[in-house]
Amino acid sequence: MSTHSETNTHIGNSLSLKRIGLWVFILSETFLFGALISTRYYLQGVERPDHLNQPLGLVISIVLLMSSLAAYRGEVAVSYNDQKKFRINIISTIILASIFLVGVGWEWYEAFQYFPPSSAFGTIFFTMTGIHAFHVLTGMIALIIIVKMGSDGRFNSNSYWGVEGVVKYWHFVDVAWVFIYPTLYLVN
C-alpha cells in the first residue's frame, strides 16, 4: 500500500537528489546566519565590550573544529566500510560537541554578569550563540541517531547517505561558527 513511501526506486534512492535537497537547505540556513551577523553590525557596529572571555572563545572554536575533523573521519571510515572507526569517530564528534556546549554554557554564565540579555550587546550575544547552540543540539541528536543506525548495521560502503547528510550538516554548523566567532569576539 505504499507506492508513495520514500523507498520508491524512482524518487527515494537517488543520491544526487538528496544531496541537492540538503544543499538547498544549507543555502536557506545561510540566509538565517547572514541575517544574524548583519544584525550585530547594524545594532552595534564593531563595538565590543570589555569583559569578553576571548580565550574561552578560542578554546571552544578549536573544540568545534576538532569535532568537524572527527566527523570527517567518521564519514571516510564508513565509506571504506570500517564500522569500528566510524563508531569511534562519530562518538568523539558527539563528545566534542558536548564540550562545546558546556563551553557555551560557561560563557553564558559569565555573560549574565557583564552583559545580560537586557543590554544591547547581550541581546546579540545570547541570540547568536543561542541559535548556533540550537543547531549544535539538533546536529548532536542526528549524530546520535546515526550511531544507533550504524550499530544496527544500516550503513555500508555503498550506502551511507544518512552519515553523509548528517556530517555535511555538522560541517555547516562549523562554517557558521567560523563567521560567528570573529563577529562576536574579535572584531573591534
Binding site: 576571548q54 578560542l58 578549536i62 566567532y181 570573529p182 574579535l186 573591534n188
Partner: peptide, 14 residues
C-alpha cells in the same frame, strides 16, 4: 590549516 587561521584571527583580534 583551520587552526592556524583561527589562531591568526585570535592574535589579530586581541
Amino acid at each position: 590549516a583551520l587552526i592556524i587561521i583561527e589562531l591568526a584571527e585570535y592574535i589579530i583580534g586581541v
